[in-house]
Write a protein that binds this DNA or RNA. Structure first.
Lengths: 188, 188
DNA sequence: CGCGGATATAGGACAAGACGAGTATATGAG
DNA sequence: CTCATATACTCGTCTTGTCCTATATCCGCG
């Protein structure tokens, strides 16, 4: 369960509330790598506390709701360390666009092109977001350098998709054989 | 729900049983694009039948269990066509390795390298599988060409990951700044 | 003065996917 | 004769992820 360990990781850097984790960690630094929704974070924090990997303390705040600040325990640090050390299986490739393309021969050229171009633009936007992130974090520490590798990985994946889509678009524009009756079977 | 449409897509090519879909379609041609387990496929077929997108007929087989063969209906073809035409959002980037790397600065060089190298090997294996698939399907039809684009996409993603990981491995070997006390905080 | 946005937490509902176990029968290898 | 394998289908539970709602207060803006 990667989310558990992502939370342990962030808490090991700094004790935080659920709200902090959502807004400062997941919506900012982990945005391009792993997203998590609020409900998920609170649920996970409860579970982690039950299994003794984090503890919480209430910090009263005059006027506004108490902060419930979570911190990792020793057991939590051990769990994090263990997870960090072990290699995990590749994420299963599960891409709606590729699936569409598997059956995309049934579409006429213009619709096929629309599909490819929309995806291309999506990756382009993702790449720009990543570039912004990369611009912000420029430090010389080990942590910053490793974190920079993370961004590089995400960026190179986006770039690969863009290049591939550009090639695919060219090939469709250059002309594909017309389809026999696949479209007919689908439209009728 | 992409799985629904993947099933509709395969059935539109050829009526099949759940077993056929699992072994001939998902474990073979869609393997590199979308995986599905058996239970999932049977459940989805039931649901699709209830909503009138597929129909089934029992084909008795002497000795062994009846084949329950599903076929798309007109409504099913329409649903498939509609899904094929509309662009879908990019798959969220959710990669355990990238997440590990986010906190990977706490690891010593050798463990960091082990992580990167394992992942590299994984992508290498995936790429080889894809190459085998690409070798098999060499036809001149529109469908085959579009399907070939699908494989190209999957391959270029794998290649991008390999290149990135090679670069990252080199950079770690070339020497990263030592970490302050992050490791200490984790080990103690 | 009211309204919305930021801060802060928590609950329910639900689809989708992962995982595993169970039930048949037939064929063929050892 | 047994064991593995292929064919074919069913059930159940757990985890994930998403969405929506509710509760509270404070601050700034118009």
């Amino acid at each position: 369960m990667s989310l558990d360990h992502a939370i342990l990781g962030f808490l090991s850097e700094q004790p935080s509330t659920g709200y902090d984790l959502k807004t400062r960690c997941f919506d900012r630094v982990a945005r391009s790598v792993w997203t998590a929704d609020q409900a998920q974070i609170y649920r996970t924090l409860e579970r982690l506390e039950k299994s003794g990997l984090v503890t919480s303390r209430l910090i009263p705040q005059p006027g506004r709701p108490d902060r419930k600040e979570y911190a990792v325990t020793q057991a939590g640090r051990r769990a994090l360390r263990e997870w960090l050390e072990t290699p995990h299986p590749l994420p299963p490739l599960r891409d709606p666009l590729l699936l569409q393309l598997l059956f995309g021969g049934a579409l006429p050229d213009d619709q096929l092109l629309a599909l490819l171009e929309t995806a291309r633009d999506g990756y382009q936007r993702r790449l720009e977001d990543l570039r912004k992130d990369a611009g912000r974090a420029a430090s010389e520490s080990r942590n910053a350098k490793v974190r920079r590798m993370t961004l590089d990985g995400a960026m190179s994946q986006a770039r690969a998709s863009i290049d591939w889509l550009d090639g695919a678009i060219d090939r469709v524009r250059a002309g594909l054989p017309a389809n026999g009756d696949a479209l007919g079977r689908l439209t009728r």
